[in-house]
Design a binder for these strands. Structure first.
Lengths: 209, 209
DNA sequence: TTATGTGAAGAGTTTCACAGCA
DNA sequence: TGCTGTGAAACTCTTCACATAA
């Protein structure tokens, strides 16, 4: 929803949830207004960057005053599409997958991001539930994505056939991926992959040792 | 180890493990040489970027020929400090922490990155082992970091006291962090934090829905 | 002839500083 | 006067294209 159609950089999008989280930690009854300076301090950036980031989407503050917290939270949720149910799937109900589901369900609070289906190839796991979410066979991927209107997919399987599985997801309407899979993935324009490969992260952290 | 002291961008460092992984998937007996073009295809980037990235660290290829795979792998491991044991600790042996330990131990193969100690505040967990790694009380953080020469710390605890715990780590020689903790962390110059906050990732992915 | 290494151009992102409104 | 919104400057990173070496 960028104002004036200029493309919003990914880095900016990735900072918005940070702003939102900080705003949510303030009691608006006590402090109804926040300045870009104060918000910047909370997330660890500069006031200029906060203002520039927000300016991609419109004018939300009052000059000489600041931002009304309730209003700004609403705008951020709208921009991030967190004002509607977003249904998430997860492929690979192993250790990592199961932990992520439990973690997310516990920390979800009143977030509209809901994990609605898990998928696995292991027959023994089919039909079981993790944190109340059922495990389906990957053969049902297409059917379940459409039925449940899954738009975001978390990938936590070992990695073979990754491309083939991603292709099925994309064809059926999945728009973004959070991938823990240790292989590069090709996606068409308009689809987003966020890589979170723990092995790669640790290897690059070794450099700073 | 940048040639000529020019600072190497973080983005470059984060691509090096990707190059290394691709090189490791080639049998050097069959294909002893690789071109920047071929390597770029494997990791999904451009040949120019591969050459530019490598040029930060020295001259590893032969003009008109390409890169000797065995040699380049060695150089990348040396640059990333993966030619020596790197000891890793993990604070927060909950669902996510346990899953990461098991995941890492399983995928470790012959990597020199080893998780050597887990820490938790829950008394019931102290002394238990996950994937053969013992859980210690957080009170022993200082002692164990020094004793085991831990240089990288994975943070998978709920988040209160995060800053205090990180400070102890830094004071005792930890140089980099992989943080799954949903609070911003302040660190002095020379220390690196890589954030991997699943909730934030999912929230920003909602935008691309 | 081939494919690297690298300055220089281009694109993208952050910082700066100030006009303008409450 | 105080703090936002925003062009312009500064900086960073990527792409390009070509001299150069095998």
């Amino acid at each position: 929803m960028p104002v004036g159609d200029k493309k919003v950089p990914d880095v900016v999008i990735r900072r918005l949830p940070l702003y939102l989280r900080s705003l949510e930690s303030i009691d608006p009854a006590e402090y109804p207004i926040v300045s870009s300076e104060a918000l910047a301090k909370m997330v660890g950036t500069s006031s200029g960057q906060v203002r520039k980031d927000l300016s991609y989407f419109g004018v939300f503050g009052k000059q000489g005053v600041g931002y009304q917290i309730v209003l700004l939270k609403g705008e951020l949720r709208r921009i991030l599409k967190l004002d509607q149910e977003i249904r998430i799937g997860l492929i690979g109900a192993g250790n990592l997958g199961a932990a992520l589901v439990r973690y997310h369900q516990k920390n979800r609070v009143h977030q509209p991001l809901e994990i609605v289906a898990l998928f696995d190839t292991d027959e023994k796991k089919i039909g079981r539930k993790i944190a109340d979410v059922e495990i389906h066979p990957v053969e049902c991927l297409q059917e379940k994505i459409q039925e449940l209107k899954i738009k975001v997919m978390i990938l936590t399987f070992p990695g073979e056939d990754a491309q083939q599985i991603v292709d099925i997801c994309v064809e059926n309407g999945v728009k973004s991926f959070l991938s823990f899979v240790p292989v590069p993935i090709k996606i068409p324009a308009g689809v987003k992959v966020q890589t979170a490969d723990v092995t790669l992260e640790l290897q690059s952290l070794a450099y700073y040792t």
